[in-house]
Computed example of a mutant assay.
Amino acid sequence: MDYPASGRVARRDKEGRPLGLLEWAQLFEDYNYRLVAETEVDDVLVRTLWEGHDVQVMGAGDMFHTGVRSGERWQDAWTGHHPCTVIEAEAAHELIVAKLRQAVS
């Protein structure tokens, strides 16, 4: 994987392949492409989406994002860490869902 120079933003598809800005924008507009997983636990919605931003010098930046919605309020499920691959994003999603299910039962 190529890494962006310091201070630069690279864009990547779900598989980590580099994208130009217009390619990224087209994929970003496609909600079905962006959606990795969505699960409801009681009245809480957990949603994991592809973002496609590689913003760190030696890391994947914000490739995927998991949010949790309770009522009308969205909250970031991860602080300081976002998954870098689809497999990591799916696993992170399932971890949040498992924790919510454990809290409910």
Rank of each mutant, 00 (worst) to 15 (best):
V86M: 11
T66S: 02
S6Y: 05
S105R: 11
E51Y: 04
L35Y: 05
R17D: 14
E94N: 14
H65V: 02
Q75N: 02
D13V: 09
W78M: 08
F28M: 08
M63F: 04
D62G: 01
S70M: 13
L45H: 03
Q102V: 07
Y3G: 04
H82L: 14
E23F: 12
V104M: 04
W24Q: 08
A77M: 01
V57M: 05
L45V: 13
A92S: 12
W78V: 01
E88T: 06
D43T: 15
S105K: 09
G16P: 02
V68Q: 01
C84K: 13
A103I: 05
H65C: 02
V86L: 15
E29T: 11
S105P: 03
T48D: 06
D2V: 14
T66D: 01
H65R: 08
W50T: 04
T85S: 15
G7T: 13
F28Q: 10
G67L: 00
R17Q: 15
M63Y: 02
E23Y: 13
L22T: 11
L19I: 11
A5E: 10
G7S: 13
Q56S: 05
A92D: 03
R73N: 07
R101I: 09
E40Q: 10
T85I: 11
A77L: 02
E72M: 01
R69K: 10
Q75W: 00
T39Y: 09
T79V: 01
R11H: 12
G59D: 01
R17L: 14
E88Y: 03
M1R: 12
R47E: 06
D30I: 00
V9A: 08
G71R: 09
R11L: 12
G16R: 10
R47F: 02
E38W: 04
W50E: 03
D30H: 05
L95T: 15
S6Q: 06
G61C: 03
E88N: 07
A25R: 06
A91Y: 08
A5F: 04
V104Q: 10
E88A: 15
R8Y: 09
Y31L: 14
K99I: 08
D30Q: 06
Q102M: 05
E90Y: 10
Y33T: 09
G59K: 01
G71Q: 08
P4D: 06
V86P: 05
D43F: 11
E15L: 13
T85D: 10
N32E: 15
V44L: 14
V46C: 11
N32V: 07
E15T: 13
R73V: 14
G67A: 03
P4M: 06
A37C: 12
A91S: 14
V9K: 09
R101K: 15
M63K: 00
M58E: 05
D43L: 12
R47N: 02
A5C: 04
E90A: 11
C84L: 07
H65I: 00
D2G: 07
D62W: 03
L27N: 05
L49I: 01
C84A: 12
L35G: 07
H82K: 12
D54E: 13
H65F: 01
D30Y: 04
P4Y: 04
L45S: 01
R69P: 00
G61N: 02
E90D: 12
S105W: 08
L49Q: 02
S70T: 13
H93M: 11
D13K: 13
I87D: 14
V41R: 05
D54Q: 14
V104S: 06
R12Y: 04
Q102S: 10
R12V: 15
